[in-house]
């Protein structure tokens, strides 16, 4: 996992719960805590941090990831405004992930293994297929929610199948209000 993800998580935790909480999480998860955005760190560390946060906040791992995804989106916009500049809706922003966002990510972090999302559009609904050994569909869920918030939209997300539930891939349906 890229260091930038740890940085975002740290930022989100700092803003909402303060530095002590982050220090506690690092201790609980037994991780080094020294992350630079350009570095590459073991996926286990993010998993450990998520688990520590879940334990500390009384949430499930999935809930922590959704929370993180949602909070991370405005932080991403602060950090990479250009990625948002050409979009007037969350939907077009989300649909640009494979073709624009991830290629940009690869520019910065060579060798980044970004997941590929399968999109199917139908009216106000976008169905998103996700397949990754990291099984972080909840993070994607949070990102979508966060993006909707940025563009002042409301979106409902239903998980039809989920790798965390034993499915071989995740299928989420996003439905926009209005």
């Amino acid at each position: 996992m890229k260091g930038v993800v740890f940085n975002l998580l740290e930022e989100a935790v700092l803003r909402e719960f303060g530095p002590e909480t982050w220090e506690d999480l690092l201790d609980d998860a037994d991780v080094s805590g020294a992350y630079t955005s350009l570095g590459n760190y073991s996926d286990d560390e993010i998993v450990a941090l998520v688990e520590a946060a879940a334990a500390k906040l009384g949430m499930t791992n999935g809930e922590v990831l959704r929370w993180f995804g949602e909070r991370a989106m405005p932080l991403l916009r602060e950090r990479y405004p250009a990625l948002f500049a050409n979009h007037s809706s969350a939907r077009s922003f989300i649909l640009s992930v494979n073709n624009i966002i991830h290629p940009e990510v690869r520019k910065l972090y060579s060798g980044a293994s970004c997941p590929f999302f399968h999109f199917r559009e139908s009216g106000r609904t976008v169905t998103m297929g996700y397949e990754s050994s990291r099984k972080m569909c909840d993070l994607a869920h949070g990102f979508v929610k966060g993006a909707a918030t940025i563009f002042c939209e409301e979106v409902d997300i239903v998980h039809h199948t989920c790798m965390n539930q034993g499915a071989d891939k995740c299928v989420m349906e996003m439905q926009w209000a209005n």
Partner: peptide, 18 residues
């Protein structure tokens, strides 16, 4: 300073990549 260094490095990497 770290964030600035990262930003500079990111810009450099991005330019290099281009």
């Amino acid at each position: 300073a770290r964030l600035q260094a990262e930003a500079i490095a990111e810009k450099g990497l991005s330019d290099l990549y281009e």
